[in-house]
Amino acid sequence: MTETLAQLFEDASARHEAWGLRLLSWREIVAWADEWVLALPEIPDDLLAVSLSREPTREAQDGLTRLAGQSSGSAVVPYLRALWARKRAAGELDDFEITRQAWRLTGGSIPYDSDDFLVLARMDHFSDEADGIYQLTAEQRAKARRHLAQEVAWFLAGETGHLEAAWDEIAAAGERAEPVWHPNPPEARQAQALFAKVNVRRL
């Protein structure tokens, strides 16, 4: 495989994920494919199928999927970070939606043992607090919303330096909230699972 084709596959993987999350329109996917068609001396059939489509037909989507399947997936998270950051700045995506979309990448593009996963786990935790799942006060939800905004900013920037000092804080928050979770088993189990992952990561 040439370096150029490897880059095509990585690009395709990133666009494929962005299309699945509805972060890109099909027109944008086609424009990307057109650029590659002009740059390559030999055009893969799957790329041509995407470039020649004007609607997301099954053939075109399958072509994009096959191109993406030949990648390592290393470009997915950096590309999505840039898209999320742009759409967040434009007011097109809020922190709750970014958290929801990013969570879909866990276990794959975002491994469970990575620092990115731990930042995302904190985002998910604060998102739940902020949207009222834990029956917190308005002041507590507002505080959680501020925490969520900061965690999302760190996640989009790829910053993980705050993690080491954050675990005691989130564990203490869990202990304080335990009486609230107790009558609500699904949320209690989710919280306990999060703190178990935190404790494992700290060892």
Rank of each mutant, 00 (worst) to 15 (best):
E3Q: 08
E3Y: 01
T4G: 02
A6D: 12
F9N: 08
E10Q: 01
A12I: 07
A12H: 08
R15D: 07
H16G: 05
A18M: 09
W19G: 02
R22K: 15
L24S: 02
L24K: 04
I29V: 12
W32I: 00
D34E: 10
V37K: 04
V37E: 09
L38H: 13
E42S: 14
I43G: 10
P44V: 01
D46R: 12
S51H: 08
L52M: 02
L52W: 06
S53Q: 08
R54G: 09
P56M: 05
P56E: 10
T57A: 14
Q61R: 06
G63T: 08
L64H: 02
L64E: 06
L64F: 02
L64I: 10
R66F: 05
L67Q: 04
Q70C: 06
S71A: 15
V77N: 05
P78D: 14
R81H: 07
A82W: 11
L83N: 08
A85L: 07
A90K: 13
G91N: 05
D95K: 11
D95A: 13
T99L: 13
A102W: 02
W103G: 04
W103R: 07
W103T: 05
T106I: 07
T106P: 01
I110S: 02
P111F: 01
Y112I: 08
D113F: 03
D115N: 04
L120C: 12
A121G: 06
H125M: 06
D128H: 05
D131W: 12
I133P: 01
Y134H: 15
Q135T: 08
T137C: 03
A138P: 01
A142D: 15
A144S: 05
R145P: 09
W154N: 14
L156P: 14
D168C: 02
I170A: 04
E175H: 10
A177Y: 07
A177C: 01
A177D: 11
P179Q: 00
P179W: 06
P183Q: 02
P183G: 01
N184Y: 12
P186F: 00
E187P: 00
A188K: 13
Q190R: 06
A191Y: 06
A193E: 12
L194R: 14
A196V: 13
V200S: 15
R202M: 15
R202V: 14
